[in-house]
Design a protein around this nucleic acid. Sequence first.
DNA 1: GGTGTAGTTCAAGCGCGCTTGAACTGCAAG
DNA 2: CTTGCAGTTCAAGCGCGCTTGAACTACACC
Lengths: 195, 195
Amino acid sequence: MKSPRAAAERAAPITEWEALVVEAVGTVIEFWRFKRNQGRVWALLYLRGREMTAHDLQEALALSKGAVSMVTRELEEWGVVSRVRSDADAAWHFHAETDLMKMVGRVIEKRESKLVLGVKADLERAERLARASGDVPPDVLARLHRMKTLASVIDRAVRGFLHTARLDVGGAVSVLSGVLPVRRPRRGSARISPG
Amino acid sequence: MKSPRAAAERAAPITEWEALVVEAVGTVIEFWRFKRNQGRVWALLYLRGREMTAHDLQEALALSKGAVSMVTRELEEWGVVSRVRSDADAAWHFHAETDLMKMVGRVIEKRESKLVLGVKADLERAERLARASGDVPPDVLARLHRMKTLASVIDRAVRGFLHTARLDVGGAVSVLSGVLPVRRPRRGSARISPG
DNA sequence: GGTGTAGTTCAAGCGCGCTTGAACTGCAAG
DNA sequence: CTTGCAGTTCAAGCGCGCTTGAACTACACC
């Protein structure tokens, strides 16, 4: 064969239980508007806990060459996967970082900001136009104004969520990396298992 | 003509500023995984503050007959739009309720529950299978367990958000209906019932 | 130089959900 | 009964984003 090294370390085919985990993470990540395969790749890397080549990933997850390239690049940009050049092998090897949720939080926040800024600008322009036109009844203007208020309320609620999630996820990061978060006798946080 | 009543009350074509509002709400509602046209219809009904027929909506928002029928039925099922038979006209008239966010919160919560329950079940099954197979290294089992913990953490964060959002939106409802929310510095008992 | 493998890019294809519009029911007036 | 409008349904069409796979670059070894 051409590459005895790679051939020797042929990727282990994915097991049934690994597939369950991979698809579960894929489903969640898809729900948060990322690509399913991003979640699948991260999940497998994290689960196995050792480096895998692009080729390994391609076979284990039944992806095309191109898909692996795109997905890994995106995960790398977000800092949830890193790529190392191993000595024993000419190929790149990927391994999972543990701060998946930090990335999710960051990206969601950016998306939300963009959305909210656009909407706010549109509502304000609408209000200006409506006032300028002069023939808009006061009750309609009042409702328009209330919608702006609603937008702010929603915005604040989402930001509050992201903030809280970020904090909670601070614990989650530790959970993923194996470091136990400080046990606070808060609400039912007794879920954390001994390492 | 055939129907002098309807002809006389021809729907006012949508103005530029109304379009801005309608599209803004459509964008937000779409972001929350509802149909854009659901947001557009609700927004126009709410903004104008008076009843509109299916035909009015069709013209004002450039929708097809079928689309109006589907969208209004869905909005009705969620309780954010109601339908009344006017005396002056044989047709149904729609008008907007003000508790849009209550619906959004409810539906999002349902979706999230479904997702989380499925994921939890899958991860638990995976853990059982992995243990049963016997040849899974302990560190991998540990990571699998940690993923379950992460799932719980995320779940709790989302539920916290929805809870908070629901409360905040209690105020928002009042905002939309014109009743000013009481400025309570603390959350919790801010449930305002005008009736 | 040539050969082979690793990885990237992007136009074309595919899948999936939303929208359309024609056929349908129902009702009221003539 | 017929006519005409209001509203519903659903198969087919369309749009949009993800995936594919072939052509490409890059690099290592001979």
